[in-house]
């Protein structure tokens, strides 16, 4: 799965973080977190509740400045990038996005295009493509508050996509330089939409998109991610490609649950089960 890149390309495109510390009110939520997320891949972050996953995501998206350490996105120190510049490079889907105002789905997605200052002409085609991707075409005129939880989640995902949607999405590197940060995006989505959207994410990643997602489901990580970073008590426990790091030993150390790994007969897919003892 790992794609070969020249060293210069790596320095240019990757998201690099060094020695991140995050302290708040005496508690250390993140310490000595370093890593390097290569562009054009899907990175999963795994860990127990309170292991620092969301905190790391906040530091990487400049939502909260780390107490110390630095983050470099595609060669730019995060501190030197304005929020406006950042918004054009990356979009963030937080956990449990809340909204109590009755936007139509189409209007909500439009807020993403507003960030890019797109004229209404250039929107129409992209809007259709995004609504189609998130299976929202039939809900386009519906009021957000009348949607089910999963539909609302898809509407937010569509809005986030609109924020970084390229002008020519059909070219081979259309999504190069764009990053997507997703905090438990698949929660509340039914299986059909999980499969559909993860396949589309993979397609956009092939076109250069970089994705960082927090996931709890081990099998989702196996199926969707290229690399996985495991966090334990605010520290990076291990990081590497999914087949390398998703071992029963690592998982047990990080999650405190012993697991069994089963290969399917054709050894195409791997299933991880918690061992009930």
């Amino acid at each position: 799965m790992s794609s070969e890149m020249t060293p210069t390309q790596q320095t240019d495109n990757a998201l690099v973080f060094e020695e991140l510390h995050y302290r708040v009110e005496g508690a250390t939520l993140l310490s000595e977190a370093s890593g390097r997320f290569e562009a054009g891949r899907i990175h999963a972050i795994l860990g127990q509740n309170g292991a620092g996953k969301s905190t790391l995501l906040r530091c990487l998206t400049k939502e909260r400045p780390a107490s110390s350490g630095r983050v470099v996105l595609a060669g730019h120190d995060l501190q030197s990038l304005s929020y406006r510049e950042l918004a054009l490079r990356r979009a963030v889907l937080p956990q449990n996005p809340s909204l109590v105002f009755a936007f139509q789905v189409e209007q909500l997605v439009g807020l993403g295009f507003d960030v890019q200052h797109w004229s209404s002409d250039s929107r129409a085609i992209a809007m259709q493509a995004i609504l189609q991707a998130c299976d929202l075409v039939h809900l386009a005129k519906r009021d957000y508050l009348s949607l089910s939880g999963g539909e609302q989640q898809r509407a937010h995902l569509a809005r986030v996509l609109a924020q970084i949607w390229p002008k020519n999405p059909d070219t081979s590197q259309a999504f190069a330089g764009k990053w997507l940060f997703l905090d438990e995006w698949s929660d509340g989505l039914d299986l059909k939409h999980q499969v559909r959207l993860s396949a589309l994410l993979r397609q956009w990643v092939k076109q250069g998109l970089s994705v960082v997602m927090i996931l709890h489901d081990l099998n989702q990580i196996m199926q969707w991610a290229d690399d996985c970073m495991m966090l334990k008590q605010g520290r990076v426990f291990t990081y590497g490609s999914v087949p390398e790091v998703m071992t029963p030993e690592n998982i047990e150390s990080v999650l405190g649950v012993s697991v069994r790994v089963l290969q399917s007969e054709d050894s195409v897919s791997t299933m991880i089960f918690p061992q009930l003892s």
Binding site: T61, E63, S82, Y83, R84, E85, L86, A87, L88, A91, V92, P94, P97, S98, L99, F101, F103, L111, G112, D114, V115, R159, Q163
Partner: peptide
Amino acid sequence: RHPLNALLLGEQSCLHMGYA
């Protein structure tokens, strides 16, 4: 008007959408 729309999604999202 644009940042106010984004603010309805929460301060977090408003920030992520590039508004001060």
